[in-house]
């Protein structure tokens, strides 16, 4: 909680309104990474996110039991990278933070995760993926949901093509 108080919402957030709206669209795929001990990368799929009113903070939901090494790495290093991608358009951005911290779940978080799963199922169904398959690999016990918040400190284009890797807004 100390860390969160230290990071005042940036005057001009890394994420503009359009990008914030993009990562909140239904059907956006999310995967996160963090450095574990020995600088070993840890990885895990996220199940939806929230963005604070001034876009100063992103909160990402995980099925904690499915990615314990990632959660441990986030807790220990506080460094996070999240890739957001829309399967139907390949539009992709990556957002990074250096102050990641576990947060208490908000009351609406389990419902948020469920809405996110439904949105992703619909997105992939339109691309021809069978619903039972998508539901199975997104499956999560609501009791194991974990929320991780961070202040975006850098964000990059990652849509395949010549602009991939450039900072957002450049």
């Amino acid at each position: 909680m100390m860390a969160r108080m230290n990071v005042a919402p940036a005057a001009s957030p890394v994420l503009d309104a359009e990008h914030a709206a993009f990562i909140l669209l239904p059907g956006i795929s999310m995967t996160a990474a963090s450095p574990g001990s020995g600088n070993l990368p840890r990885i895990g799929r996220a199940l939806g996110c929230r963005v604070s009113a001034q876009r100063g903070r992103i909160t990402v939901l995980f099925a904690g039991g499915q990615c314990p090494e990632l959660i441990e790495a986030l807790r220990a290093s506080r460094a996070i990278a999240v890739v957001f991608s829309q399967p139907s358009t390949h539009r992709t951005i990556q957002v990074k933070g250096a102050d990641a911290a576990l947060e208490p779940l908000a009351p609406g978080d389990p419902a948020l995760a469920q809405r996110w799963i439904d949105g992703f199922v619909a997105e992939l169904a339109a691309l021809g993926y069978a619903e039972p398959l998508v539901r199975a690999f997104l499956w999560c016990d609501p009791a194991e949901l974990v929320a991780v918040g961070f202040t975006p400190c850098a964000a990059f284009q990652q849509t395949p093509g010549p602009r991939a890797g450039l900072p957002l807004g450049s």
């Binding site: 995967t31 996160a32 990474a33 963090s34 450095p35 600088n39 070993l40 990368p41 840890r42 990885i43 799929r45 290093s77 460094a79 996070i80 990278a81 999240v82 890739v83 991608s85 399967p87 992709t92 990556q94 990074k96 993926y129 690999f137 990652q158």
Partner: peptide, 19 residues
Amino acid sequence: ALPATIATCARDGTPNVSY
């Protein structure tokens, strides 16, 4: 059939994740 994702870390520990 389903895209894979990869996580790596810079020397300073900054993580990166991509398809």
